[in-house]
Design a protein around this nucleic acid. Structure first.
Lengths: 127, 127
DNA sequence: CCGCATCCGATTGGATACTG
DNA sequence: CAGTATCCAATCGGATGCGG
């Protein structure tokens, strides 16, 4: 009779097998979501794009202390992950517009929930 | 007449001034929430504690490839942030129990939303 | 206008060993 | 049992300068 840890999963919290990992795993839904919103500045960029399509330059103006390096990295990652898309207009000077895809719009409820939870966490709880 | 960027905030997305920052800010609710759930292994530790109080050792058994260093760092941070609490039982060998505080329980809806959104993001969307 | 290349300091997390 | 201490490789993000 061994000491085995019997897991008794809360199916509301962890509805599918994909979330039952005992180590970080890219296929875990929670990781997948955090991969998109994680990293400094990322949620600010997403917030801007949730208000509508923007050019690279306008994004830079809205987030003035964000460096080109990080901005282009964030946009590249969001594009890779399929939540944003890049559209280059013909002509000069180059005009590039970033907009959220349908997948990107799907981030809205999560952003709202992050805001709501964060507000609770910041509140000077009556302990 | 200058080119000024007039922001027109979506009040559902950004209901209060706290979220209207143009740079990373600890007082932003979204940052506050990500500060709690951010970092490798963190959501796994929270997931375990959402199922009930656990000793340091049992946490280690549930997440076998998580090193002591990172585990104790995560627990210290969660404790600092007020979402978990540490209870040391008298006697030997030392027995320490970690449990979520009320603030920690407040993370449940966020964890569920992360799971839901992540599931959507992982789905092989019909583009 | 839209980036990428480079450099560089700071932070992160894994491995290992050791203590009360 | 419950950690801390140390070391180290890898990643991250800020600053700056250049190119299409």
């Amino acid at each position: 009779m061994t000491h085995q840890m019997v897991r008794d999963w809360d199916r509301t919290l962890v509805p599918t097998d994909a979330g039952r990992t005992d180590a970080p795993d890219p296929a875990c839904p929670v990781e997948a979501a955090l991969r998109v919103v994680g990293g400094r500045w990322t949620t600010l960029v997403i917030r801007e794009l949730l208000h509508g399509p923007l050019s690279y330059r306008d994004l830079g103006r809205l987030l003035p202390s964000l460096s080109d390096k990080v901005l282009s990295e964030r946009l590249a990652r969001l594009t890779d992950l399929g939540v944003a898309e890049r559209m280059e207009a013909v002509g000069f000077p180059t005009r590039v517009t970033y907009r959220l895809t349908a997948r990107g719009e799907a981030l809205r409820p999560l952003m709202t929930e992050l805001y709501r939870t964060g507000t609770e966490l910041l509140a000077p709880e009556a302990n």
